[in-house]
Design a protein around this nucleic acid. Structure first.
Lengths: 221, 221
DNA sequence: AAAAATCTTTATCAATCCTTAACTTATGCC
DNA sequence: GGCATAAGTTAAGGATTGATAAAGATTTTT
């Protein structure tokens, strides 16, 4: 049974998460402040951490560098976009803005746990003929090499991390905002278009599917 | 089964490493101080050592010269670059800054063990015509000798240590910041350029590939 | 102390990438 | 069907990054 630590001072959200996680078969552990989290971490090591940024005592940003090696999903209010740039750099593995959809959060938890489980052995993401080697940073479609830019690579990685799920446009923008802070929905369309074309040129098929009004997902067929 | 000694006084990081190494099939042995490490080393000889620089008792820098023959990977906080000691010259085989990526560390451990296993006397890194003898500190491209400066040698070594992997610019900067703390991205470009030219003059080909916006890797072709 | 080697900075050119903008096509709704 | 909104495509520009050369600064050697 996987243990998930919830670091959030909000009683209501914390309880909500606790119940949802229990229902899914996880063992939730709660910490209401950064300092309390550190104390708990000295004694036990959870499999994943849900971290709120606004914390009493030790802030989430200060806590992040100390959580080395444990997958961290940051929960943050949509407003504070300022520090988003540094989050992924300083150790966060994923990012979800409040108010969040519980099902989406659960899916992202599954993804992070899957990545952590297979760590070391295979750094390869693949789905229906598209393969991504995250260590050599190379991508192939039907074994044909595909040369991607940094942004295209980041987008495809998000899609491949949970290939059966729809990735919202806003989440893609959040994930790649580290490298391209000015990227708006208008330019995202262009990136998707270029990515589609490169994959099609190499693999012959169209690999990315649009979900009207929401975002994108990998084509299952 | 390979034994790996962790010399680090940080309880939390130590435990993290211990679990990760066990999961990968290694036998971890822990030492919490430099003096304790020496006592343990008198009784047993690990296949590899992970060494933190900030140690109580005997510092990592003092310990390094006494670990003769055993592969050493230094773990160091990015902050304490103050010491002007030349780590790689005094016996360290690789260098990783905290906070580090566990997968990357595991990859580097594999590399060091492979080197150590493949040869008692000749520690040779090679990839596609480029050969580096780390004991005599000599490099050849297509059997033609190449004369490199200290920095160029350190950069090429990083590339050869995991030749299929992309080495980020920041990691290279970390590696050589011991000798040249002021090295910025601007001068790294120059080092890469000089290294490329020397290799090309000797081997005829271009061996180093740029990964736009990320870093460099060895050309696979 | 002078000379040589090495490293960093600066400048310039070339290559790549991201965004904007204009336009076309598709989808949902009345 | 017709309108409004969303998605898709293409081309052009501006901005960022990369490569190389040359010169100044630092360290090492002689």
């Amino acid at each position: 049974m996987k243990t998930i630590m919830i670091i959030d001072d909000d009683i209501y959200i914390g309880q909500l998460l606790e119940e949802a996680l229990s229902r899914e078969g996880f063992r939730p552990v709660r910490a209401y402040s950064g300092t309390e989290a550190l104390l708990l971490l000295a004694a036990q090591r959870p499999d994943l951490i849900l971290l709120d940024l606004m914390l009493p005592g030790l802030s989430g940003e200060e806590l992040l560098p100390k959580l080395n090696g444990i997958p961290v999903i940051v929960l943050s209010a949509k407003a504070d976009v300022g520090g988003k740039v540094n989050l992924l750099r300083s150790g966060a593995d994923d990012y979800v803005t409040k108010p969040f959809d519980i099902d989406e959060l659960l899916a992202r938890i599954e993804v992070q746990l899957r990545i952590a489980a297979g760590s070391g052995s295979s750094a390869v993401l693949s789905f229906r003929g598209v393969e991504m080697d995250t260590s050599s940073r190379s991508v192939t479609a039907e074994c044909a090499p595909v040369k991607l830019t940094k942004t295209e690579y980041a987008i495809l990685k998000q899609l491949l991390l949970s290939p059966t799920r729809v990735i919202t446009k806003s989440h893609i923008l959040d994930m790649i905002s580290e490298d391209t802070p000015d990227c708006m929905e208008s330019s995202l369309k262009v990136h998707i278009s270029n990515l589609r074309r490169k994959l099609r040129d190499a693999g012959g098929k169209d690999y990315i599917e649009s979900v009207w009004g929401i975002g994108f997902k990998m084509r299952e067929e």
